[in-house]
Amino acid sequence: MGTPAITIENLTKEFTNPSIFNRGKVTAVDSLSLTVEAGHVYGLLGPNGSGKSTTMKIVLGLVVPTSGRTCIFGRDSRDVESREAVGFLPENPYFYKFLTGSETLDFYGKLCGLGGKMLRDRSRELLALVGLESAADRRVGGYSKGMLQRIGLAQALVQDPRLLVLDEPTAGVDPAGSHDIRDLILRLKQRGITVLLCSHLLSQVQEICDRIGIMNHGKLVREGPLDDLISIENQTELTLENVSPALLAELRERAEAGGARVLGAHKPQQNLERYFLDVTAGKK
């Protein structure tokens, strides 16, 4: 195994209560340890206030931990250099309203040491990637929430990072856009890019993540490969096509004769997102 993309060791973050009447400490992250292997898509889940965003900010060097350590590809994440390998999309991102989409990518590209023709080409390529070519010369101040999310994703990718940290990447994006972003994450994974994803859209997390960690009250309460965590060990699903009622009854009898209990038989449903995309396909 190579160097992990993210290593979090015994991380604790305490904030001082801002109230002047109660100056106690609030523990946002409590002795958290986890590893995200390179090339994986890792879903960090948890209810609001569970410490996900604080963990992300510590990984990105935006917040200093009270104790413990975080590393990006083996480099302490407090080192500015470690961020060369990272692209970050915050939740509900805002960018300089006076810049156009293209200028926004130029700005973030320059921050990563890019310039000249290479940056111009890269900007154009990323605008096409996130479907904002036609809005490249429009001011970001006039972008919709979904467009802001797309330009945010483009800026996160500008230096072709090895690790992408995404906080609610599909918030405010329509189903088609959300589907595109999911596909993009899967394509990035195929290219070996590691993704740390925070999202409340659990169905989407389930579709794209290899591993998940569930946080609650600052602690990691569950962690592991997605399939292991959510599969029910003592049950088996069988999907049949063109099955007659008689055959179904026979199968049920044989199963019960063999000591198994049939819990239910129903027609499988397609995902609502898939249905929506099929209905709206070609109507743009």
């Binding site: 500015v80 250099e81 060369e84 700005f107 320059k110 921050l111 990563c112 040491g113 890019l114 310039g115 290479m118 080409d121 890269r122 390529e125 990323l126 096409a128 990637l129 996130v130 479907g131 990718l157 500008v158 230096q159 072709d160 990072p161 090895r162 595109d180 596909d183 993009l184 394509r187 290219r191």
Partner: peptide, 29 residues
Amino acid sequence: MTTESSGPAVAAHASAHKLFSLRRTWAIA
């Protein structure tokens, strides 16, 4: 969304980190 192509070249170009970079500072200025 199409697949990008210039990524690896961009990453190679962006990897020479300096402690203080005039280019970055100028971009912010």
